[in-house]
Write a protein that binds this DNA or RNA. Structure first.
Length: 265
DNA sequence: AAGATCAGCAACCGCCTGACC
DNA sequence: TGGTCAGGCGGTTGCTGATCT
């Protein structure tokens, strides 16, 4: 492996770097009108001098209408910590459980936390309290996350029916969806990546009508991909509940995700 | 006021995987 | 059945703005 993607090769003249508003507009309007049939063909069809991968990334991480953006709430933060404990650096799977957030966003968030944590550890290990204080001086630097790396493999076993349910639990989605809620081809990132899938865009409702997001079926999430606090809290509680009990197995099937694997649905 | 430092974010890179031929 | 292609993912880098000295 390790081949350079044809679409990214230097043979084609592709732009790199930040996207201009015009490029965003071209990509957005193209997807709104025609959907995503094949990423590699989109640059040409949309009149963009970008490679397909770049277009996909831009759409997934920035232009999708269901993206929430903005700061992470405490609930989201807790959920990320819990999920990271369980899933490790599987950002796409974590993102699949955080409606309105992209894997890149979560990854960046976590890396920022980790950086802070490492600095704090370093500072505290040098027994210098003044260094520690210095690390806190900016932007209210704090870190509540656990820094321990998760097991390489973690897949929750189905919870027996007679096990207690976490307080505030909300009916979980029947199956784990894609990290991109309106992407019918997603299925946890392992689905076939063919050119046949059609991703509607333009507004969240349209996307919803094509491929209802698993999370949105609970009605706890807004059209824009946001979830109310109760929903997130339930997820956090549920995660803590499961992870606290260490429902581990050796199943390598990543598609047997957290939601799909437990017995609450 | 200016430089240094840091956090946050966007994007790229390399690799893996599955579909197709 | 093996090679090629395209999508997807995680790691990493670089830029920018905010904050501090």
């Amino acid at each position: 492996m390790g081949r350079v993607h044809p679409c990214c090769s230097e043979e084609k003249k592709v732009r790199k770097g930040l996207w201009s508003p015009e490029e965003d507009e071209r990509l957005t309007s193209h997807i709104a009108r025609f959907g995503v049939s094949c990423w590699s063909s989109i640059p040409e069809l949309a009149g963009l001098q970008r490679c397909g991968k770049s277009c996909r990334l831009r759409w997934m991480n920035y232009l999708r209408p269901d993206l929430k953006r903005g700061r992470f709430s405490q609930q989201e933060e807790d959920l990320i910590i819990a999920l990271h404990k369980a899933l490790g650096n599987s950002w796409s799977q974590i993102a699949a459980r955080l409606p309105g957030r992209s894997d890149n966003e979560i990854k960046n968030f976590w890396n920022a936390r980790l950086r802070k944590k490492l600095r704090q550890k370093e500072a505290s290990s040098t027994a210098g309290s003044k260094e520690h204080a210095a690390s806190h001086r900016r932007r209210g630097g704090e870190d509540g996350g656990s820094g321990t790396h998760p097991p390489a493999v973690f897949n929750p076993l189905p919870v027996p029916e007679d096990r207690p349910r976490p307080a505030g639990y909300v009916a979980a989605p029947a199956a784990a969806g894609s990290s991109y809620d309106n992407d019918p081809s997603g299925a946890g990132g392992t689905a076939a990546a063919t050119c046949g899938s059609v991703l509607m865009a333009g507004n969240a409702a349209a996307a919803e009508s094509v491929a209802p997001s698993p999370t949105s079926t609970t009605s706890a999430c807004t059209e824009a991909g946001g979830c109310d606090d109760g929903f997130l809290k339930a997820m956090v509680d549920d995660a803590s509940f499961l992870f606290g009990d260490f429902y581990l197995d050796g199943n390598q099937d990543g598609s047997n995700s957290f939601w799909g694997g437990h017995a609450f649905s």
